Computed example of a mutant assay.
Amino acid sequence: MSASAYALTGFISWGLALLILMEVIRTYLVISGKVAANGFTPDNAAHSPFMQRLARAHANCIEGLPIFGGLLGVAIITGKTDITTPLAYTLLVARLVQSTIHLVSTSELAVSLRFTAFAVQMAIGAYWSLILLI
Rank of each mutant, 00 (worst) to 15 (best):
M1S: 08
S2W: 06
A3W: 09
S4I: 05
S4E: 05
A5F: 09
Y6W: 15
Y6E: 11
A7D: 04
L8F: 09
T9M: 11
G10E: 02
I12C: 14
I12Q: 06
S13V: 14
W14Y: 11
L16T: 10
L16Q: 03
A17N: 06
L19A: 14
L19Y: 12
I20P: 09
V24L: 15
I25A: 06
I25T: 04
R26F: 10
T27L: 15
T27N: 04
Y28K: 13
Y28S: 12
Y28N: 13
Y28W: 15
L29R: 13
V30P: 02
V30C: 09
S32M: 00
S32P: 03
S32H: 08
G33L: 13
G33K: 12
G33Q: 11
V35A: 03
V35G: 03
A36N: 11
G39A: 10
F40H: 02
T41N: 13
T41K: 13
P42Y: 07
P42A: 09
N44Y: 07
H47Y: 00
S48N: 11
S48M: 10
S48E: 10
S48D: 11
S48R: 07
P49A: 14
F50T: 01
M51F: 12
M51L: 15
R53Y: 09
R53P: 04
L54P: 03
L54N: 01
A55H: 09
H58S: 09
H58M: 10
N60P: 06
C61T: 07
C61W: 03
C61H: 08
C61I: 03
I62D: 04
E63R: 05
E63Q: 12
I67D: 02
F68K: 02
F68E: 03
G70E: 11
G70Q: 12
G70N: 11
G73Q: 11
V74W: 11
A75N: 05
A75I: 08
I77T: 11
T78C: 07
T78H: 04
K80F: 04
D82W: 14
D82Q: 13
D82R: 09
I83Y: 06
I83D: 04
T85K: 05
T85S: 14
T85F: 02
P86E: 01
L87I: 12
L87Y: 09
A88V: 00
A88K: 00
Y89K: 00
L91E: 02
L92W: 07
A94D: 08
L96E: 02
L96T: 00
L96Y: 05
V97F: 08
Q98R: 12
Q98F: 07
T100Y: 12
T100L: 13
I101V: 15
I101H: 05
L103P: 02
L103A: 08
V104C: 05
V104K: 03
T106M: 01
T106A: 01
T106F: 01
S107H: 01
L109S: 03
L109P: 01
S112Q: 10
L113Y: 03
L113R: 04
R114T: 00
R114I: 01
F115K: 00
A119V: 04
V120G: 06
A123V: 13
I124N: 08
I124V: 15
I124E: 07
G125N: 00
A126L: 15
W128F: 14
W128S: 08
S129Y: 12
I131W: 10
I131L: 15
I131F: 06
L132W: 04
L132V: 02
L133G: 15
L133C: 15
I134F: 14
